[in-house]
């Protein structure tokens, strides 16, 4: 679905490349998590996959980024809208402000795509049900809580039925309750199998539980790539400034105090930790 070949990107006016010679292939329907320290290039990668780098930020691209058989550099943002959906941190800024109700806000993207009204109605109703927003459909999106707004933002993108959904730290400004709701939805979208999900996320426990694959970026380079268990249990994550899951921390502590025998892999999910401690 997505393939990067020696892909590098430099923001205008910057000396160094924010992304450096990335080689990467993400299959259709895969759920791929990205982690890395601050400034590792995670957000830039999201912008590159959704075409905002270079089409919105300008700057210089080297190498190729393919979306299916099309080169993202050759497409316009208008072409990419509806193909790749981007959701970012700040829910408030993602509400268009062009419509007065949640229903209208979700329909806004479809109106721009020029869909027939009948299809807009069906799709909006589908997404409202899917995202558990039906009760809020006639409220103003500005009168909702942060978690609800972020759900509206995801719903608005999802209604456009993108093949790839790119989420850049979608829960970083949400409370635990909102976080839980948004993660549940991402999990559900991924399990439907028709959408490729790319998620940048600091909450490692959550990636461990749901991501098919985790990729680590450091200073714009790809440094690790593998299954969630293999990557997240790695001792190198701490050196890269990313940290570990709480389960790994607990297991490490227990091992040092000789409470458990040294495991071959540190646990990264609740189930794995349970198995170890029992």
């Amino acid at each position: 679905m997505i393939s990067l070949q020696d892909f590098s990107y430099r923001y205008p006016g910057q000396q160094h490349f924010a992304l450096q010679q990335l080689n990467l292939e993400i299959k259709a329907g895969q759920f791929c998590g990205f982690i890395g320290a601050n400034g590792a290039g995670k957000s830039t990668l999201c912008y590159a996959l959704s075409g905002f780098a270079p089409h919105f930020f300008r700057g210089e691209v080297r190498g190729r980024a393919w979306l299916g058989k099309k080169n993202i550099s050759d497409l316009s943002l208008a072409d990419l809208a509806g193909e790749v959906g981007l959701v970012f941190q700040n829910a408030f800024n993602q509400i268009s402000g062009a419509r007065f109700t949640v229903r209208g806000e979700i329909a806004f993207g479809l109106e721009n795509l020029g869909l027939a009204r009948r299809r807009i109605v069906t799709r909006v109703d589908e997404v409202l049900a899917l995202m558990d927003l039906a009760d809020l459909a006639d409220r103003s999106p500005y009168e909702l809580s942060g978690g609800q707004q972020q759900r509206v933002a995801i719903a608005s993108i999802l209604a456009m039925q993108p093949k790839v959904l790119v989420l850049d730290e979608p829960v970083s400004q949400l409370d635990p309750h909102g976080t839980q709701a948004v993660f549940k939805i991402i999990e559900m979208i991924s399990q439907r199998g028709d959408t490729t999900v790319v998620l940048v996320e600091h909450k490692l426990e959550w990636l461990a539980a749901y991501a098919d694959r985790v990729i680590v970026l450091d200073h714009g380079r790809l440094v690790m790539d593998g299954t969630a268990r293999a990557v997240l249990a790695s001792a190198d994550l701490v050196k890269l400034g990313i940290g570990r899951t709480l389960y790994s921390e607990a297991a490490d502590l227990a091992r040092n105090k000789k409470l458990v025998s040294a495991p071959s892999h540190l646990p990264v999910t609740l189930n794995q930790a349970q198995a170890l401690f029992q």
Binding site: F52, A81, S96
Partner: peptide
Amino acid sequence: MALEARGFSRPGRKTSL
């Protein structure tokens, strides 16, 4: 960016709910 992601600058006819 959010507007672009929703196809606001897309040329051609728009429809409405």
